[in-house]
Design a protein around this nucleic acid. Sequence first.
DNA 1: TATTGTTATACTCTATAACTATA
DNA 2: TATAGTTATAGAGTATAACAATA
Lengths: 159, 159
Amino acid sequence: MTTTGASPRPGTGERGELAGQVVRRIVHVARAMRHDTDLGFARLGLTPAVARALHQLDPDRPIAARELAEQLECDRSNVTALVDKLELAGLVHRQVDPADRRLKTLVVTDAGRGVRDQVHQVMSEARLLAGLSDDELGTLRELLGKVSDGGCPEDCGGE
Amino acid sequence: MTTTGASPRPGTGERGELAGQVVRRIVHVARAMRHDTDLGFARLGLTPAVARALHQLDPDRPIAARELAEQLECDRSNVTALVDKLELAGLVHRQVDPADRRLKTLVVTDAGRGVRDQVHQVMSEARLLAGLSDDELGTLRELLGKVSDGGCPEDCGGE
DNA sequence: TATTGTTATACTCTATAACTATA
DNA sequence: TATAGTTATAGAGTATAACAATA
C-alpha cells in the first residue's frame, strides 16, 4: 500500500484506464467483425442469428431445441422462430424424440451440412486479421483465452 | 504449390483455422463484456445504446446530432430517439445553433456529466480482464490495435 | 407437478423513406 | 436543390408469460 496501484474502485487508476482501452477495442473490433460476417451470412440468405444457430448444430450429433437455446444463451421461445426459418430453408428437420415425445430433435439435412460449412468458412475468413502474423495471431488467441469466461462453451478453442 | 501454406480460399488451411478461432474468441469475449457492461448501464437507468450515445458526447465540445450519428455509425433517425431519452432524463439539452438553425447542438448537462463519468467507469471496470497481468493487457491492446479498422474513431486508444 | 416446445406480446436497436424547416 | 432533424414504419433480436402436450 506504499506506492500507487491500489485503486479504491475498479475502473479507476492506470490499470483501470488500460483495461478500459482494451474493453473498448475488443468491443470495437468485434463490432467490425460481426459487420463483416453478417455480410457473408446475408450472401447465404441467412440472418446473423439463424446463421449462428445453424453453426451451433452438429450434423453428427442432433440435439433438442432446449439444448440449442442453452448453447446460444437465449430463451427457448426464440429458438422456435430460428428453427422455423432453418426448416423452411430445408436446412434442418424437426424430429420428435420417440423416447421422450416432448423433445424435438434438430437434424441437419444434407443441404444444411453444406450451408453450415459455408457459415463456418465465413467466420474463418477474418479479413480484418490479415495484418497480423501467425505468431501474433497465436498470442492473441492465448490472451483472449485467459479472459474470464473466455473458455468458450464449444467452438472457440477446440475444433 | 510445392508445400503447405498456400490456401486457394481464405478461411481454409492452418492459418484460416487459427484466424477462425481468434474471430470466435473475440466475438465470444465481446459478447460477455457487453453483457457485463449492459448490467452496469441498466443500474444507471440507461439502455446500452443510450449509454453509448452519452459516452460519445463530449461535455466540453458539444456536437450536432448529425455528428453523433456519424460517431455511432448509425442513421440520423435513430439519434432522435436516443437524444429524446437523454433529454427526458435531463442529461442532455438540445440547443438550436444560431449560426445554422437547421442544426441542433447536443449539450451535456451537469447531471449528464456525472452519469457520463459513471458510464465511462462501467466500461473500464472489466471484471473479465482481472486474470490478465498489466503486461498481458498491454500486449492485448497492441495486438487489437493492429487489427484492421482497429484504429477506432475516438475513444479506444487515445483518451 | 415439472418440462418441452409453442404462441402471444413487448421492448430495444437499427434501417429506409417521406416530411419540415432551414439554407 | 441540398441538408438537419424528425416522424412513421418495418424488421431482427431477445425477453417474459401463458398454454398444450407429455412426462
